[in-house]
Design a protein around this nucleic acid. Structure first.
Lengths: 115, 115
DNA sequence: TAATCTATTTAGTCTGTCTAAATAATAGCT
DNA sequence: AGCTATTATTTAGACAGACTAAATAGATTA
């Protein structure tokens, strides 16, 4: 098996991935992280130091909104921030998916497409 | 049409692309650049400030060797540096191709594979 | 001689991911 | 009460790689 994806190769595609998981339903940061790990079937190793800045970046860009979760005394830890994709975020997701496909086709022109 | 690829999305994949074009035959930097542009069919906009540092990086990593071109007074400009892929570079290219495919499959797990 | 073409080099910036640790708040145990 | 484990977020600082932009080089052509 290959190494999990991380680092430089993710550059610029993480935002689209985050938007994609939040497009299914709203979620707090830690759950976004778990969804990413789960959907990538162990192929992804993402650090908090990458995810939370990405969420912040998307929020300030108006692609996500965030609200504090209402108090739930059946769970531990600090109040979670629930992120929800905006209409602008959905448009950006579409665009990101197109860019992704374009990116893949261009790189494969050069390095040689898989069989 | 999509925008040409540049910037962050290239991160970490440029090295593999450069190795791929040099795997066909040796070439000087400017020709590497032209081959990349040609093979990407206009889908790539690469700057000298990205290519030459990449060549330097690959050379110091032992993936390429470089030699000064012999004098050819039928052309203008300074002596060109001819780059040639090494055995180590070829191995790295294979590895880069595998990493690329893994990367693509992981990202598509998350953002939704194309049809 | 100036302009143009081919080619390379390099100084400095920016962005995004990383490492690493601190902080928050509660549950469950002794 | 105090300790530890769990869940979750935040943040400081390092680092890599692509960027902008311009300087430099040498030969040809006008």
């Amino acid at each position: 098996m290959s190494e999990p994806i991380s680092g430089k190769s993710l550059h610029g595609h993480l935002d689209t991935m985050v938007l994609a998981v939040l497009d299914k339903s709203e979620a707090h940061g830690f759950e976004v992280w778990k969804r990413l790990e789960a959907q990538a079937k162990g192929g992804l190793k993402l650090k908090e130091g990458s995810l939370y800045p990405a969420l912040y970046r998307l929020e300030t860009a108006g692609l996500l909104t965030a609200r504090k979760e209402e108090d739930d005394s059946s769970r531990r830890g600090p109040r979670r921030r629930i992120y929800k994709i905006t209409r602008k975020g959905k448009r950006r997701l579409d665009q990101g998916r197109q860019e992704w496909q374009h990116f893949v086709s261009v790189v494969e022109c050069v390095i040689g497409a898989p069989a």
